[in-house]
């Protein structure tokens, strides 16, 4: 058998332990899809694979035990799924057009979770639209609140929902539920003065706990959805680390621009001699330094006024 493994891998298949067998990774942007697409996953697993499915850490499905020569057939069958999940594609019926940029993962978000400050899956899907298909190795995850259930801080880009709480002192009855919750469960940004609550915006991480705890609706959400963008966290062999805050209180449009610009940055700075031609974005930032990265990704980005960009980052 003659097979170009580079092309196979870029097509979201894998070279596996078992010779002549492959496994396909199904992208589920934002980790959310209509249940009916499970039928397709099941069909591929039972018809072409070994009847099992692995649920990946990035919220996709990996279907193992597929004959390499059945790749084209599998690609044709998953077309309905690719269409249904609105995943960008270069050629129809040819499966996934890239694999380097990983599935954009998201916690369950505000569709279900009380804590979430935004609809994580929907935003993930909008990011997917902007960056896929792209083969540069970039990992992105979105989480609804600073609890970070999706572990966004282990990604190159972590998008953490923030909510700038709005306070109506007239409605405040001074029960201090928010003050206590913020102290015990969050940033300790609230102080009780003169029977009303004072918020220290420099400490506030926008978790929304005050809004959730307020029994009278004195604290409410801002209609302006903002995020904390944390960058260059990673697992892996070389120097694993947690992502650090890049921009606080940033809006969605700016996040999308920055991620888009990142691909241009990677294109310019990637080590052409890297093994397999692959270099994760985080290692490139290590090489160029944060300032170069910052200048590239913020190029032509008009940040929303509330956005606070970190001057330096030390991972």
């Amino acid at each position: 058998m003659d097979i170009n493994t580079k092309i196979l891998k870029k097509n979201a298949f894998r070279i596996t332990k078992e010779r002549y067998k492959t496994a396909i990774r199904i992208r589920v942007p934002g980790g959310e899809m209509a249940a009916k697409y499970l039928d397709t996953v099941k069909y591929v697993a039972e018809t072409f694979g070994n009847g099992t499915i692995h649920i990946t850490t990035r919220q996709g499905f990996e279907i193992p035990g597929i004959d390499i020569e059945k790749m084209a057939e599998v690609n044709a069958i998953i077309q309905s799924l690719i269409d249904g999940l609105e995943v960008n594609q270069t050629d129809s019926n040819a499966g996934y057009s890239a694999a380097g940029t990983r599935n954009v993962a998201a916690c369950i978000g505000s569709r279900v979770c009380q804590f979430a400050n935004f609809d994580t899956s929907a935003f993930a899907q909008r990011i997917e639209k902007v960056i896929f298909p792209n083969d540069y190795h970039v990992k992105i995850a979105l989480t609804g609140c600073p609890n970070d259930c999706i572990k966004a801080r282990m990604n190159d880009f972590g998008i953490i929902g923030m909510n700038e709480p709005q306070y109506d002192s007239y409605r405040c009855i001074g029960c201090q539920a928010c003050v206590k919750a913020c102290e015990k469960k969050s940033a300790g940004a609230l102080k009780f003065e003169n029977f009303k609550v004072v918020r220290h915006s420099d400490k506030c991480i926008g978790c929304g706990e005050c809004v959730l705890k307020c029994p009278t609706g004195a604290w409410t959400r801002s209609s302006n959805k903002l995020y904390q963008l944390v960058i260059m966290g990673r697992t892996g062999r070389k120097n694993p680390r947690i992502a650090q805050p890049f921009i606080k209180w940033i809006d969605e449009a700016s996040v999308l621009e920055i991620i888009k610009n990142t691909y241009a940055y990677v294109h310019n700075y990637i080590d052409k001699d890297a093994p397999g031609g692959k270099e994760h974005v985080g290692y490139i930032v290590d090489r160029t330094g944060y300032q170069v990265f910052k200048n590239w990704v913020l190029k032509d980005v008009i940040l929303n006024p509330k956005a606070q960009v970190a001057e330096y980052i030390y991972w």
């Binding site: 009380q114 400050n117 929304g208 809004v211 959730l212 409410t220 959400r221 209609s223």
Partner: peptide, 15 residues
């Protein structure tokens, strides 16, 4: 109905 003023994201509060 105050849009988005419910305790949870994208919920309203009628006051």
């Amino acid at each position: 109905a105050l849009l988005g003023k419910g305790a949870f994201t994208n919920t309203d509060s009628v006051r």
